Amino acid sequence: LVRYRTISKIPQITLNFVDLKGDPFLASPTSDREIIAPKIKERTHNVTEKVTQVLSLGADVLPEYKLQAPRIHRWTILHYSPFKAVWDWLILLLVIYTAVFTPYSAAFLLKETEEGPPATECGYACQPLAVVDLIVDIMFIVDILINFRTTYVNANEEVVSHPGRIAVHYFKGWFLIDMVAAIPFDLLIFGSGSEELIGLLKTARLLRLVRVARKLDRYSEYGAAVLFLLMCTFALIAHWLACIWYAIGNMEQPHMDSRIGWLHNLGDQIGKPYNSSGLGGPSIKDKYVTALYFTFSSLTSVGFGNVSPNTNSEKIFSICVMLIGSLMYASIFGNVSAIIQRLYSGTARYHTQMLRVREFIRFHQIPNPLRQRLEEYFQHAWSYTNGIDMNAVLKGFPECLQADICLHLNRSLLQHCKPFRGATKGCLRALAMKFKTTHAPPGDTLVHAGDLLTALYFISRGSIEILRGDVVVAILGKNDIFGEPLNLYARPGKSNGDVRALTYCDLHKIHR
C-alpha cells in the first residue's frame, strides 16, 4: 500500500512540481520508500527539464536528425535550378540546329562534286560548318556529364541527390541515346576521305529529338503553341524528305545512260545542264529549293507536275512521300480545326451564355430598361472574369491554397485601402477568403433606401454616388468604403439613402 501511494504521487509531482519531503505519510521509514524516492526525484528532475525545454521552444527539443539540413553532394545540380533551365534551352537550340543542318550536310555532301578544292585539302579548321559541328559534339558530351550530376524525382516524389543513384537512373534511361548522339564521328573518321560515311553517321544526332519531343509535351495545353509546333514538325519532315529526294537524284545521276532524272530535267529547265562528264548542272541553292518544293507539294497532295519522278527509285520514294503525307494530314492537320476551336472556345461560351440571357429575357418578357441593365451587367461581368467562376475553380483546392490565391487576387485593395494598413498577414488572409466580388454598370442602383444592410462594401474600381431623395450626399471612388460596420450592432440596419454607380464599378463586399 505504501508503495502504491508513493507511485500514485508521481503525476502530481510531474505537473505541480511538489516535493515529496513535505508529505508526512511518505516520510515513514520503510525500505521500499527509501529505494523508490531517489528514482522519483530523478524522474521528476528529468520531466521538469523536458517541460522547461518545451515551454522555452528551444531548438534542442527536436531530434538531432530533424535539425540537420538535407545534404547535397558537391557538384550536384538541382533539376529545378536556373542554371539547369538555361542549359536545357541551350541544348534545345543545338538539337534544332542539328535537326536542320545534319540531314542537309549528309545529303548535299554525298558524292558532291561542286567546283573547288576537296575538304581534305583545305583542312578541318577552315570549314565553318565542321567547326560548328565540333562545338555541338562537345556541348552534347558536356550535357552527358551534367546529367550524371543532376537530381531527379523518383516514384515516391522524392528528390534524389545521391550521385550513385543518379548515375544508375541515367544509365537506365537516356544515357545510350545521348551517348550515340554525342559521338564525334568527324574526329574519329577525319582524314579518311569518307565524307559520305561521316554525313550518314552524323544523322545519329537526330535521336535527341525524342527527348525534345517529350520536353515539349508540357506545352500541349496551349493551343497556339501546339499549332506552332505542328507546323514546325511538318516543315521539318518536309526538309528531311527534300534532303533524301536530292540524295536519290544525286546518286543516280552519274550512272544513268539517259538523262531522265529530276536533276537533269531541272538543269535543262533553268539552262544549267550537266555536261557529258557529269559536272556542271544547277547550283546547290536551286537543287535544295526545288527538292523542298517537290516534297511540300507531295505532302499537301497538290502535285503540280513541273517536278516529277521519272526513275524507279524516284517513283518509289514519291509513293512513300504520299503515304507520309496522308498520315500527316490525319495526325496534324486533322487537329488544326480542334485547336482553332479551342482557341476561340471563350468567344463561343460568351455567345452561348448571351443567347441564354436573351432567351430568358424573351421568355419572361423583361421590360426594355431592365433588359438593357441585365445585358450590360452580363457584358461587364464577362469582360472582368472571362466567364470563369472563381468560386467553382477554387473549390477543388485546399483552404490554405485558397487563402493564398484570394490574398493575391485582392492584393491591390488590401495594400491601398486604409482600414487594412497594419493588419497582420493572417488577418488579411482571413479577410480575403470572405470577400465576394460584384460588378455594376453605370446607372445601376446597388442599394435602395430602406434596404437591409448586411454587408460592408469596398470599391475596387469606378465611382458611385450616394443620394437622399434627389440630393447627392457624397461621391465615392476607388478604395472608399460604404455599408454597415460589421458586428457593431446586434441587428442589421437599414439604408438611409440610395447608392448608384456612376461608372463601371468593381466592388468587394463582406457579409455579416
Rank of each mutant, 00 (worst) to 15 (best):
G443L: 03
A242P: 01
L414H: 01
I166L: 08
H162A: 14
L109R: 14
S81D: 01
E221L: 01
T347F: 01
F304L: 01
Q372V: 15
R356D: 13
F83W: 10
K202R: 04
A181S: 11
A119G: 14
K202P: 01
S345W: 10
I144C: 04
L327W: 04
N335I: 03
L263G: 01
N156Q: 13
V212G: 04
S337M: 06
T437K: 11
W89G: 04
T438C: 12
N275R: 04
E375L: 11
G303R: 01
A119N: 11
V226L: 12
I366T: 01
I189K: 14
A235S: 14
L67C: 03
V302K: 01
S326K: 04
R362T: 03
A449S: 14
S301V: 01
T352H: 13
E314Q: 03
V289D: 01
F435Q: 01
Q353Y: 03
E115V: 14
G305L: 01
A247Y: 13
G267Q: 01
Y350V: 03
A440S: 13
C427P: 05
Y124G: 01
K436V: 09
L94W: 04
I166E: 01
P103R: 01
S337N: 15
A125G: 08
Y350R: 04
Q127A: 02
T300C: 15
L209H: 01
P273L: 01
F108M: 08
Y219H: 07
H351F: 05
R218E: 05
W240D: 01
W240P: 01
L227R: 01
G346P: 12
K287P: 01
T385S: 03
P128Q: 03
I405A: 02
H79T: 01
M322G: 02
V302H: 08
I361F: 01
A213C: 09
L263K: 02
P128T: 14
H264W: 04
T98E: 03
P118G: 12
S161R: 08
S297W: 01
A242N: 01
H364V: 02
Y274L: 03
E196Q: 15
N410Q: 12
S301T: 15
V180A: 13
L94Q: 15
A69F: 10
D178M: 01
I340T: 05
H439M: 07
A155R: 13
G271E: 03
S345I: 09
P398D: 03
I270E: 01
I138D: 03
F333P: 05
D268L: 14
E121D: 15
L145P: 01
S276I: 06
E64V: 05
R259I: 03
V212L: 13
G164V: 13
I361H: 01
S220R: 05
T102A: 07
S412F: 08
V100G: 01
R429I: 04
Q415V: 08
P309T: 01
P369D: 10
D137M: 01
A225T: 05
H79K: 01
T120W: 01
S276L: 04
L413R: 01
S326H: 01
G422D: 15
S283W: 01
T300G: 04
Y344C: 10
P273T: 01
A225S: 06
S220D: 08
I189H: 13
G278V: 01
E115R: 15
S326I: 03
E376M: 06
A449G: 06
Y170L: 01
V289G: 01
R259F: 01
I189E: 12
P282Y: 01
A432P: 02
A238L: 01
M433D: 01
G261Q: 02
E314L: 01
F304M: 04
Y350C: 01
H408R: 03
L90D: 01
I135H: 01
M328N: 01
Y65T: 07
Y104L: 01
A338H: 15
G422T: 09
C232S: 13
I96N: 01
L216H: 04
G443T: 01
G303K: 01
Y170Q: 01
N306R: 01
P163G: 09
F296S: 01
L323V: 10
T347I: 04
F420N: 01
I183Y: 03
L236M: 09
G123N: 15
F234W: 08
F294C: 01
P103Q: 01
I366L: 05
V393M: 04
D217R: 10
L428R: 10
Y344A: 07
Q379K: 11
S258W: 11
L145A: 08
V212Y: 12
A119Q: 01
V307E: 01
R211E: 06
C232F: 09
K215V: 03
S301P: 04
I332N: 06
L431V: 06
F296I: 13
S194W: 15
Y329H: 15
V212T: 06
A119S: 13
H351E: 03
F296L: 13
P82R: 05
N265Q: 14
S277H: 09
Y274M: 01
P184L: 01
R342D: 04
L323M: 15
E157C: 14
V180I: 11
W382N: 08
I91W: 01
A182R: 01
T76G: 01
Y97W: 05
Q269C: 02
N386E: 04
P367E: 15
Y329P: 05
D444G: 10
W240R: 01
W174N: 04
F234E: 14
Y219F: 14
R205D: 01
K285M: 13
A182W: 01
R362Y: 01
N154E: 13
F378Q: 13
L176K: 04
F294G: 01
G249I: 01
K434N: 04
Y246G: 01
I324Q: 01
A392I: 06
Y80Q: 10
F140Q: 01
T98I: 08
P398H: 03
H439D: 01
T352F: 11
I405T: 04
L206A: 04
T438Q: 13
K66S: 13
A119L: 11
L134N: 01
V302M: 03
Q365C: 06
L241W: 01
N310I: 01
S308R: 01
F435P: 02
Y104N: 01
A449M: 06
H408T: 01
F304S: 06
E221Y: 05
F140R: 01
G271K: 04
T76C: 04
F333D: 03
T203I: 11
A125L: 15
A155T: 14
D133I: 01
M231Y: 12
G164P: 09
M256G: 14
L370S: 01
Y124T: 03
S301E: 01
P70Y: 04
P282I: 01
G223Y: 05
L201I: 07
K434I: 03
S412R: 10
G278H: 03
A125H: 04
L230K: 01
Q353G: 08
G261R: 01
H448P: 01
Y65C: 14
I141R: 01
L176P: 08
A348S: 06
N312Y: 01
V212Q: 01
A106Q: 15
A224I: 11
H364C: 04
D404S: 03
C427M: 09
N154T: 11
A242Y: 01
A440I: 13
A338G: 03
Y350N: 01
V142N: 01
T438Y: 10
K287G: 01
R74W: 04
N310P: 01
C243K: 01
A381R: 15
L355R: 10
E359I: 01
V289R: 01
S277P: 01
G173K: 04
K287F: 08
V180F: 08
C243P: 01
A213V: 07
Y384G: 05
A225G: 13
I237T: 09
N156T: 13
G116W: 04
F101M: 14
I237W: 01
T120E: 13
D444Q: 07
S326D: 01
D444K: 03
K285N: 03
V307P: 01
F83K: 12
L187Y: 10
A155P: 13
I91S: 01
T437P: 12
N368V: 08
G223T: 09
P398R: 02
K425S: 12
I332Q: 03
R349P: 04
L229E: 01
C122N: 01
V302N: 06
H448V: 08
P163A: 13
F175K: 01
I388T: 06
A381D: 14
Y344N: 08
A130L: 01
P419F: 08
N306L: 01
L201W: 01
V447A: 02
P103S: 01
